[in-house]
Nucleic acid binder design. Structure first.
Lengths: 127, 127
DNA sequence: TCAATAATACAACGATAGTTGAAATATACA
DNA sequence: TGTATATTTCAACTATCGTTGTATTATTGA
C-alpha cells in the first residue's frame, strides 16, 4: 500500500460515523448493506450518512453496487488487510522473536484476539 | 478496545508526520528512538516533531522513557494489535470460510503479506 | 554557577472537516 | 404520467488541525 493511500484510509476511519459504518459492513461481509439499512441501524440522518459513505467509497474502503433504486455498500476487506500490512511492516526487523504473537492478529477467530493483549509483552517495560 | 480509543488512534495515524514516526518506531521495535534521532531520520523540525510525538503519546500509540536529557520513544505494539482486532471484529460472522486468508494478516513475516492481496478475493466481485 | 544542547510549550495564522437544512436526481409503482 | 421513495448534492456555519516562529524548561559538562 502506498503512503498516501494509508493516510486517506486512516483519515476516513477517524470519524465516528465512518468507523461505525465500516465496522458494521465488515461484520456483514460480502452481503453488505443498503444505505437505508445502514442509516436505520446506526440512526444517522440520510444526508449525513451519504456524505460519509461517499468519503469511504472514494478512499476505497467501501464498494457500491446499484440494485434498482437502492445502493448496496460492502467493506473492501482486501484493502483493510493491505492497511494492516502497511502499518505492521518490518515490525520486528531487529528481533523476529518478538513478533511470534503478532502472527495471530487480524484474525476472524474471536478466541484468538483476547489472548493477544496479555501474551504480547514488550521487552522494554515502557507500558 | 473502546470505540473512542480507536477513533483517537485512527486520527493520530491520519497525519503524514505521525504515520511516518509510528512506522519508523514499529521497525525499531523495543529499541525505540530518541526524539532527535527521529527528527534527523525524517527531516522534521524539532518543534513540529515534538507536537506530533505528544499527540501520539497522548493517544497511547507511543511510550516514552527519559534518558538523561534525551527522551526515547517506543511504539506501543499491543495497542496496535488491539486496534487491528477492533477493526476486524466479527469480520466473518456470517461466513467463517471467508476469513481463512485473513488469519495471516498483521504478521511480521514479509513472505506472508504479499500473498494476501491476491489470495483474498471477495465473493461479490465488487472490487 | 554558566553556557550549550535536547526537547517542549505557546500563540497565531490558514486550511480543512463535520453537521445541518433545503433542494435535486433517479428509480419504482399505480 | 404522476407520485412516493431512496439517495445524493449543495451551501453555510462552526470547530478543529497542522505549521511556523518564538520563548521556555531541563539536563549536561566545564
Amino acid at each position: 500500500m502506498e503512503r498516501n493511500t494509508a493516510l486517506t484510509v486512516f483519515d476516513s476511519l477517524s470519524s465516528g460515523v465512518r468507523l461505525d459504518v465500516f465496522r458494521l459492513l465488515v461484520k456483514t461481509g460480502a452481503d453488505g448493506m443498503v444505505a437505508g439499512e445502514i442509516a436505520q441501524a446506526l440512526e444517522i440522518p440520510a444526508n449525513n450518512l451519504s456524505f460519509h459513505l461517499k468519503a469511504l467509497t472514494q478512499v476505497g474502503m467501501l464498494g457500491v453496487t446499484q440494485e434498482g433504486r437502492f445502493l448496496r455498500y460492502r467493506a473492501n476487506i482486501p484493502q483493510m488487510l493491505d492497511l494492516i500490512g502497511y502499518l505492521t511492516e518490518e515490525c520486528c526487523a531487529n528481533d523476529p522473536g518478538q513478533c511470534a504473537t503478532m502472527r495471530a492478529a487480524s484474525t476472524c477467530d474471536p478466541a484468538v484476539l483476547p489472548a493477544l493483549a496479555t501474551t504480547h509483552t514488550q521487552t522494554s517495560g515502557a507500558f
